[in-house]
Design a protein around this nucleic acid. Structure first.
Length: 236
DNA sequence: TAGGCCATCTGGTCCT
DNA sequence: AGGACCAGATGGCCTA
């Protein structure tokens, strides 16, 4: 059975603030437990009252003092352990937060080199990863076809115009075929629109959207480009 | 209002 | 032992 996770809202500016507060809290707990630790001497089940012979008043005071000290040190040890656990957790939380921030920064960098869509909505994490995958595939496919066309020039193999970085699709070109080739699956073909240099987003945008806004169903395309995972199979 | 996305916390596991 | 990584849980925010 999964334990219920309780999210604790942290109103503190920093871990040290929180630690300070925790210490105060623990000191209070400690005081309470100290009081408790004094109780057993009056308890009927206390070993002192059952196993040892009746102590003299002086000895009983010493025993009590010893017990007090033992109780205090036990509580102190528990409190220290508790504090150590808490500080470790806080440190681990900080690290985890930083780790996720780094991950998000990397995703932002990835987003920044991917062609953006006209509606300019930020890609979600999963969309970014899928789009990047498809984008890389489209670029490598472009290179492969370009190589082939160099090896077999002219009529043996015609590099589709839309896949040539030097020849982006013209407004009058067949948008349908442009979208439906050069992909492991016809449905993910629109990748080819992004087969331009990722390091030059402006060019990418020109290439991807420059003159084709009126031709291109970008919203459905976005779904298509990002969501299509069929080309994953090629690399699995 | 339901569902999607996200940030954060948390405990477990693996690695150095 | 401590840090990195991971997955589950939870709550907040936003949008259709």
């Amino acid at each position: 059975m999964p334990s219920k996770v309780v999210n604790v809202y942290c109103p503190f500016e920093s871990s040290s603030d929180l630690l300070f507060s925790l210490r105060e809290e623990e000191e209070e707990e400690e005081e309470e437990e100290d009081c408790d630790s004094l109780q057993p001497s009056s308890s009927p089940s206390s070993p002192a009252s059952t196993t040892s012979p009746m102590p003299t008043p002086q000895k009983s005071e010493e025993e009590k003092e010893k017990r007090r000290r033992r109780g205090r040190s036990r509580v102190k040890n528990e409190a220290v352990l508790h504090t150590i656990k808490k500080t470790r957790r806080i440190k681990a939380n900080d690290r985890e937060r930083n780790r996720m921030h780094n991950l998000n920064s990397a995703l932002d960098e990835l987003r920044s080199i991917l062609p953006s869509f006209p509606d300019d909505t930020k890609l979600t994490k999963i969309e970014t990863l899928r789009f990047a995958h498809n984008y890389i595939w489209a670029l490598s496919e472009t290179l492969r076809l370009a190589d082939q066309s160099l090896e077999k020039p002219q009529k043996d193999l015609l590099l589709p115009g839309y896949l040539s970085p030097a020849a982006p699709p013209s407004p009058g070109s067949d948008a349908g075929s442009w979208m439906s080739s050069a992909s492991p699956a016809s449905s993910s073909s629109s990748l080819s629109i992004c087969a331009s240099n990722p390091s030059s987003p402006a060019t990418s945008e020109d290439y991807c959207y420059g003159h084709t806004d009126s031709l291109f169903p970008f919203h459905s395309l976005r779904e298509e480009v990002i969501q299509d995972t069929s080309c994953f199979a090629q690399y699995q």
